[in-house]
Write a protein that binds this DNA or RNA. Sequence first.
DNA 1: ATCCCATGTGTACGAGCGTACACAACGGAG
DNA 2: CTCCGTTGTGTACGCTCGTACACATGGGAT
Lengths: 188, 188
Amino acid sequence: MAGRRYDPERRQRIIDAAIRVVGRSGIAGLTHRSVAQEADVPLGSTTYHFKTLDELMVAALRQANEGFAKVIASRGGLEDPRTDLAAELAALTGEWLGGERTGVELEYELYLAALRRPALRPVAAEWCEDVAAVLSRRTDPVTARALVALMDGICLQVLLTGTPYDEEYAREVLGRLLPGEGGPGAGA
Amino acid sequence: MAGRRYDPERRQRIIDAAIRVVGRSGIAGLTHRSVAQEADVPLGSTTYHFKTLDELMVAALRQANEGFAKVIASRGGLEDPRTDLAAELAALTGEWLGGERTGVELEYELYLAALRRPALRPVAAEWCEDVAAVLSRRTDPVTARALVALMDGICLQVLLTGTPYDEEYAREVLGRLLPGEGGPGAGA
DNA sequence: ATCCCATGTGTACGAGCGTACACAACGGAG
DNA sequence: CTCCGTTGTGTACGCTCGTACACATGGGAT
């Protein structure tokens, strides 16, 4: 039982390498070989731990999601009812986009890959739901989902058109989605 | 001139075939060979007309955009100030998503490919701007852009998570983006 | 101590890719 | 009529891919 030469670190390193590869060369560049080289493990090791590339992508996307979740978690203000939710969201998005474009591209590429790869869809859906769930503590579920959608759309436009991120604008339009602007009542 | 065996129809047929291929197998399945087979032309013909796959994708995306533009144009209600813009948009989105999933997937896949392929970015940006421009006739540019972003996000969530499209919901949240809810005065 | 099998590795193979290149077909110039 | 350049086609090459398979390795059962 899990004795022998069992090496869980190896698996993790492969996932990390996969993420790095996708970040650098995109999904198109994600192959068993490129990952093996990046992780500095033999080719057979990648095929052993992940029989298909889909499996590897699922693991990578899941891990990327956790990375984003941490960004959210590190922003305690998101759960504080006294903060301006739209402003918090806009700032968080800015922080995320402003960091390394590579990281954002990577997560989005993995996320968007779900369009064609059904295996990824549950993970993508999970991400949506997780973020919406966090937001639901500050507003109703419908609004939360819309907030997520709008954030997605804004990020997409930034990424796809090269337009710089405008936090002011994001805060403004995000705020419009909120039902009662500044209206409490969602206490408890 | 341009006599000889000059055949402009051939080029168009290749683009059409490329769109069909992407629709069926995704960008990953787009190769000179697959397109050649789909278009029923020799392999050399595809490489002759489109030296690189990027070129072919640009042409395909451009054509796909025009397809969407036609959908918009066919909805005269979008420009009529008396209609409910949010409802129009929601209905249009529903119509688009409700049709053939293949078509939508195709356009989105091409559109999203701009994330990694700079060659596609201007075309993607153009699409954004075109839609926003149409919307700008009914509202201010900032709102128009937000509307586009939210539509994008909503479509994405539908496509990525498999959730059925909820037109009611779309109308509701799209409406919240509009500055004066139901408020006329933007006449002329 | 010996055997056995799960675990992990390295190499080889067939398929499909973009690309390059040699060749057929056609129409005008001399 | 002959020659030649443009236009389009078909085949062949080198490369990389996923996959399969033969081979080390090392702990547990006997």
